[in-house]
Amino acid sequence: MSEVLMDIQDLAKHFVVDTNFFGKPVSVLKAVDGVSFSINKGEAFGLVGESGCGKTTLGKILVNLYSPTSGKLFFEGKDLTVLNEGQRRLYCKDIQMIFQDPYASLNPKMTVGDIIAEPILINGLLPKNQVEERVIYLLNCVGLARHQRNRYPHEFSGGQRQRVGIARALAVEPKIIVCDEPVSALDVSIQAQVLNLLGDLKEEFGLTYLFIAHGLNVVKHISDRVGVMYLGKLVEIAPKKELYANPQHPYTQALLSAIPVINPEKKMERIILEGDVPSPINPPAGCRFSSRCFKVQESCKLQEAKLKEVSPGHFVACHLFD
């Protein structure tokens, strides 16, 4: 078993939606509600779920954009949740993020060169006179040309901006990068370019990824292990091949079957889920998937299902496996 880089224990993030007159919360959105898993050094962990499942919130907790409501977050054995702001900032350079929207993730008033140089400078990683050389090297790594460093983001296409965002994340030599839907805003032909780039960089720099996506097909290519989230909870974790060949949770099965297959001959037997994802402010009692599940039993509506190991490395939270 390889070394654990990040260990997430019972992490939760609740947002107060509404308070009463005295400031007491009356309505709480449980975006992430007790999630535990670990990410090994050098692996790519795929995190999949539909909008509102809390996957992005979880990513933002990891990079310190949100502080968790409860739970622990161990990075290389150290609990990051107990650190104060100044101490926590020292870990910033180890945990970086790549954003979904390449149009909002670059400061429009800075040149691309300055954007990539900034993290190097503020973390004091290199003396000033070596920074430019490093910026050129990073641009080269992500497939951009050195002369482009003096241009502003609006002069680039979506795919190129995403490359700049990747270079910025790489600049501080992070140990883990949280990729928050890095290709979902890009054109099909550009998606493959960026996915391959991320794959190459992982090899080259020995990176670890938490790869967040809403579709199981994108994650499949890049991940070693995959976790499936539904309404703030992890419902299934398994090594990639195992999950795709042998999905156990009814939600994972539905999610897999919902992906359109690029082959008109092979119209899959499709599981079409009824209804919408319930609101995370007021989730169903018991198993959260019970309101849409096609294998629902009486017990599902009463009690929450805990993650259980059904085969080595394959965890499922479902009462079918009790």
Partner: peptide, 26 residues
């Protein structure tokens, strides 16, 4: 709420620098 402000925080900027460098120019 723009992601570039988030990115600035993630890379370890102090609050005052985020305001001067990333928010005010915009």
């Amino acid at each position: 709420e723009n992601d570039y402000v988030h990115a600035a925080k993630i890379m370890g900027n102090k609050t005052r620098r985020i305001i001067y460098k990333h928010i005010l120019p915009n």
